[in-house]
């Protein structure tokens, strides 16, 4: 476990000329692994205990029930768990956005990589929300021009199952776009569109450069994980499905 090395230090001879009159003679580096062969400090364990108990109780709180397990690997194009996340963001963010700005969210785009865990069959707990979304990212609504929205659809052609909501994308066998709609309508020049995403993607995460320099943006101060928790609390049963929002003919 111990990796040792020695380094000799003629180099630091100069230090000897200084006031404190010491010379660095040798340096030794060791990496010490923290393994279960070490004793646990009791004072630390006692200190942690009440925090641990509280977290454990909170995390075990049952919020809903899932009849089936859903993994993000059931894609391409769209997955049940991704659809659930994008739909949850749409359903729960739209009222806040409307109240704040008077406008409505036209569509939602999240990223496939942001789904960090499987939704397991059985009790859906607070822990489920933390497992699926351990990060602190928050919802941001960006107003995009028609060109940027078209860039977004072009980006999505890769087929990776980035979660979307209130939008539809249909590709042909050779990956050209047959249908691309936002809010049920094709993208029109001169129009702008309010797309909800998270702050990581807004900053160009996962190569989503079309989110750069939006016409406007609104920070909702609503974490993606909080959206999931609220969504789970609202629903008794979490049974998302794959559908035709993003498909290849």
């Amino acid at each position: 476990m111990h990796k040792k090395f020695f380094l000799l230090s003629a180099l630091f001879a100069l230090i000897a000329c200084k006031q404190s009159q010491v010379t660095l003679k040798a340096i030794e580096g060791t990496q010490l692994a923290i393994t279960d062969s070490l004793a646990q400090d009791q004072e630390v364990l006692d200190y942690i205990a009440p925090y641990q108990k509280h977290i454990s109780e909170e995390m075990s709180a049952v919020l809903a029930y899932a009849p089936q397990s859903h993994s993000k690997t059931e894609g391409p194009y769209n997955t049940a768990i991704g659809n659930m996340m994008a739909d949850a963001v749409y359903e729960l963010s739209n009222p806040i956005f409307k109240k704040r700005t008077g406008n409505a969210i036209d569509g939602v785009l999240l990223n496939h990589g942001g789904i960090r865990s499987t939704l397991n069959a059985g009790e859906v707990t607070m822990r489920t929300a933390y497992d699926i979304m351990p990060f602190e990212n928050s919802i941001i609504v960006v107003e995009l021009t028609a060109d940027k929205v078209r860039d977004m659809f072009t980006y999505l052609k890769s087929g990776k199952a980035h979660p979307i909501a209130n939008m539809q994308l249909v590709l042909t066998e050779d990956d050209s776009i047959v249908k691309a709609t936002v809010n049920g309508k094709p993208v029109e020049d001169g129009q702008t569109y309010f797309i909800a995403t998270n702050d990581y993607l807004r900053q160009g995460g996962d190569g989503m450069v079309f989110f750069a320099d939006p016409v406007s943006e609104t920070v909702l101060d609503y974490k993606v994980r909080s959206v999931l928790i609220d969504y789970f609390k609202e629903k008794d049963t979490i049974a998302p499905v794959r559908d035709n929002r993003f498909i290849k003919e």
Binding site: Q21, V22, I27, G29, L32, I34
Partner: peptide
């Protein structure tokens, strides 16, 4: 892991 680096000094006025 915990990193450990030991620096050994000698104190001596003639150590130039």
């Amino acid at each position: 892991n915990l990193g450990r680096i030991d620096f050994e000094f000698t104190s001596s006025k003639s150590a130039k």
